[in-house]
Design a protein around this nucleic acid. Structure first.
Length: 659
RNA sequence: GCCGGUGUGGCGCAGUGGUAGCGCAACUGAUUUGUAAUCAGUAGGUCGUGGGUUCAACCCCCACCGCCGGCUCCA
């Protein structure tokens, strides 16, 4: 018998008899690996353990506690879900069931127009556990298109997939797959699923899963096609990993800005006003004012000028800008006035700013012209997508448009990116990566040269910042490339923050130009940019990032002074007034209930500093400092020391020196 | 928009085809207190809205509204 040679990830080589499988390889390496092995990665491609290896293959054994391992076991768990549903609802159609981040889903259509309800999850889960305990094998088979169609004759979604495979409709999937063959995985005589694989060897390798929710999902994501029911689940390699994930979900719930917004009395969505339209309460208003004030200050320093524009406009403006052509669905319906004029609420600020630029002839000496506005815009978001402050119908953008010459573009972008990151860091976000969206494949405006130059500049600028850069090939708008700053929050979620967008179209549509040094007309380049994105959404992200415990400089209330008895109130008042004189937001919690209760209230309100003052403090002009950030209170701190500490913290935004 | 869930005093929840309850908050009074809940009392709801079934609906049915989860992470 001949010998094959396999390369292992550590660079070593191992010889195996011909016909050996990845399972054999794992066994040859060690019993523990053999027991752990779920699948294999053969020359970078995931494959089943039982597939024979060829000489020269480089093979890595895939184990459960790895990204690939989880992907495989999640995908296999999805099959178990499908089988469970088919057992409980004979005749059910199953569509697709991939592994996704943290879990899997499967889309179904039940017979007789039946629907899952939330209560069914428990039954299905039970059936899944039965299937796991039956220790069914996953057996791969390969079929011709005709065989495949016969095998899945009663599964319309599967037959559609097979047909699309055979016609090569799904190119990217099949780059390396023979379009005349499909594969299937069989668990039992009665359950087989069309699938590329790979899968775990047996169902007993699964088990740490939980069905999370049921949701509607259109077949192929297309609203015009049938709506299926999607069951989402999560699956992990161990009970502990599952538990940790469920805990993480709980943690995210605890931080939900919608709940904290209510608890901390920051904002609300009165139903009298309408979905996605928030009112910001005084406490939330303080946060927002501080955010905006700080942003304004930074923008002034960075050479921006402030402009103000109306909330509504004649339709003509959005006809010229082109928004009515490609953004109409996102706009509130028009208002028809008596004189036959049509007005729209603005979904974007850019055309207004272009008009300011165009209000008189411009010289190259005026450029770059940087116009900033906290611009409130209204967008008619679909009713199902509005969500807290993050997806609303009325919001305020920290919007600016820079008009500059092409020669200035590079410097502007460079400075802009530094500016953005600097500003975001002041709010305590510090884990970023960048995403560059390049020219879309189909239609786009602007010359090749413009695009290339802009993309190259954005890329260069991104690299100069030394941040991770993710390429979103073809993801730019048709009118220009885009760079977006993504930030990771305290629990590792990423949020798209700032966007910087080049625009070759708008100056052209409005025929905006400037007179150059050569005394000829030139077209300026336009840069759209929002740093917070929407002020409301940014506020929501901060609330979640900090679990509502905003840094002292942003806290609606910074200090609560708690006199022990009411004869300490005079001293407490003095402290409050002293702080007030430095614009510190402080209030007194009067001595009409026990100290513990008053401290507790201030704690639940997440006030950064509670100052307890009693006999000792009045005598020595000290305070007892109970800081939000510390486990135990500090007694006898000199009042002057506390004040200077506090002011320094507020001034520095609580960030370390040399930030 | 579509699918599923949900809607009870300001907030968090209970509740049953037969006159609506608890905790917190609020208000009043007492309590004068050294670091996460002092005690007592009072008030507050046409049970999301509109229809229907019934002798009787918060509960059952229908419609609408709001909110929650999701709706191309692709055999």
């Amino acid at each position: 018998m001949s010998i094959i040679e396999i390369a292992l990830p550590d660079g070593s080589r191992r010889e195996l008899p011909e016909g050996a499988t990845a399972a054999d390889l794992a066994a040859a390496i060690g019993p523990r690996l053999a027991k752990d092995a779920l699948a294999a990665s053969v020359n970078g491609q995931l494959s089943d353990l039982v597939r024979p290896l060829a000489s020269g293959d480089s093979v890595a054994i895939v184990t459960p506690a790895s990204a690939e391992g989880r992907e495989v076991l999640r995908h296999s768990t999805a099959h178990v879900l499908a089988q469970a549903v088919c057992r409980l609802w004979p005749g059910a159609h199953y569509a697709i069931g991939p592994a996704i981040t943290d879990g899997f889903y499967y889309d179904f259509e039940l017979p007789n127009g039946e629907h899952f309800s939330e209560n069914d999850m428990e039954r299905i889960e039970e059936m899944m556990r039965t299937i796991v305990s039956e220790d069914q094998p996953f057996v791969r088979s390969e079929h011709s298109i005709d065989e495949g169609l016969a095998l899945f004759a009663d599964q319309p979604f599967k037959t559609e997939i097979i047909t699309s495979v055979s016609t090569g409709a799904n190119r990217e999937d099949l780059a390396e797959v023979d379009a005349s063959v499909v594969s299937a995985y069989r668990n039992t005589d009665s359950f087989v699923d069309l699938c590329r694989g790979p899968h775990v060897p047996r169902t007993s390798r699964l088990g740490h899963f939980k069905l999370m929710r049921v949701a509607g999902a259109y077949w192929r994501g297309d609203e015009k096609r049938p709506q299926l029911q999607r069951i989402y689940g999560t699956a992990w390699e161990s009970a502990d990993a599952l538990k940790a994930h469920l805990y993480q979900i709980e943690e995210a719930k605890r931080r939900d800005h919608r709940l904290l917004g209510e608890e901390l009395d920051l904002f609300s969505f009165p139903r009298e006003i309408g979905p996605g339209l928030a009112v910001i309460h005084p406490r939330g208003g303080t946060i927002r004012r501080l955010m905006e004030d700080y942003s304004r200050r930074r923008h002034v320093q960075a050479g921006y000028e402030f402009v103000y524009t109306p909330h509504i406009t004649k339709s003509e403006l959005f006809e010229t800008s082109g928004h009515l052509d490609w953004y109409r669905d996102g706009m509130y319906p028009p208002m028809e006035l008596d004189e036959g004029q049509t007005y729209y609420l603005k979904p974007m600020n850019c055309p207004f700013h272009v008009l300011i630029f165009k209000s008189r002839p411009r010289s190259y000496r005026e450029l770059p012209l940087r116009m900033f506005e906290f611009g409130s815009v209204y967008r008619y978001e679909k009713s199902g997508v509005v969500h807290g402050l993050t997806h609303v119908r009325g919001m305020t953008q920290d919007d600016a448009h820079i008009l500059c010459t092409r020669e200035q573009m590079r410097d502007e972008l460079t400075n802009l990116l530094t500016f953005v990151l600097g500003l975001l860091r002041e709010f305590g976000l510090n884990d970023f990566y960048l995403e560059l969206s390049t020219r879309p494949a189909e239609k786009s405006v602007g010359s090749d040269q413009e695009w290339q130059e802009a993309e190259a500049t954005l890329e260069e600028v991104a690299r100069a910042e030394g941040l991770e850069l993710v390429l979103d090939e073809g993801g730019g708008a048709f009118y220009g490339p885009k760079i977006s700053v993504q930030a990771r929050d305290a629990i590792g979620r990423t949020h798209q923050m700032s966007t910087i967008q080049l625009d070759f179209q708008l100056p052209q549509r409005f025929d905006a130009n400037y007179i150059g040094a050569d005394n000829a007309k030139h077209r300026p380049v336009m840069i759209h940019r929002a740093l917070f994105g929407s002020v409301e959404r940014f506020m929501a992200i901060l609330i979640e990032h900090y679990s509502g415990a905003l840094p002292t400089w942003l806290s609606p209330e910074q200090v609560v002074v708690v006199p022990v008895r009411d004869d300490h109130e005079e001293y407490a008042t003095e402290i409050r007034d002293l702080l007030g004189a430095s614009e510190v937001r402080a209030r007194i919690e009067h001595a009409d209930e026990p100290l513990g209760g008053r401290v507790r209230r201030a704690k639940t309100e997440k006030v950064p500093y509670i100052l307890v003052v009693g006999d000792d403090d009045v005598a020595a002009r000290t305070v007892g400092v109970n800081a939000r950030s510390s486990e135990s209170p500090e007694r006898g701190v000199a009042l002057t020391d506390f004040v200077s500490r506090l002011l320094a913290e507020i001034e520095s935004h609580g960030l370390p020196e040399g930030r």
